[in-house]
């Protein structure tokens, strides 16, 4: 498939996407900090567990975004697909490694606070993506 010369809008798209992804991750970091600060009123273990839960989501997601968006100059669909697939595998492996390290090394840990924050950030990711990319609403 010849797609040479079709990437004129690609760098603009890439810039917009990078900006929106950065905003999403910063908002999620702010949300994590807010939850941790609120839980600090309850107890310290819940607070740091919630913060770790947030980081467990943000670090692999940010790594995935960085890896995909850093190669924004890719033109052919095959290259783009390969890049997204390898980034996705890396994201899952990074998440598994971080979860394993957390459960092996951090003690005591409040599992409920950790997973609540983690799931909340997943949901916030869905919501923010839908809000920031209003193109989805036309689909």
């Amino acid at each position: 498939m010849n797609t040479a010369g079709l990437g004129l809008g690609q760098s603009k798209q890439n810039q917009q996407l990078s900006r929106s992804q950065l905003q999403v991750h910063l908002l999620q970091l702010a949300l994590t900090s807010a939850i941790s600060l609120l839980l600090m009123l309850k107890d310290f273990t819940s607070a740091y567990s919630a913060f770790i839960g947030g980081l467990l989501y943000i670090i692999p997601a940010a790594w995935f975004s960085l890896r995909v968006l850093a190669k924004g100059q890719l033109r052919s669909p095959k290259q783009i697909l390969a890049n997204v697939y390898t980034s996705e595998v890396g994201k899952v492996l990074l998440a598994i490694a971080l979860f394993s390290l957390t459960f092996a090394w951090v003690s005591p840990l409040n599992g409920f606070a950790l997973f609540t924050t983690y799931i909340l950030l997943q949901l916030s990711g869905w919501y923010l993506q839908l809000k920031m990319n209003n193109r989805f609403q036309k689909l």
Partner: peptide, 21 residues
């Protein structure tokens, strides 16, 4: 392709949420 790439990238991030949990 540039538009599809953006949409693809975003939706891949959404699809893997539940498996990651």
């Amino acid at each position: 392709v540039p538009l599809l790439r953006s949409q693809f990238f975003i939706v891949v991030g959404l699809v893997d949420a539940v498996p990651m949990i």
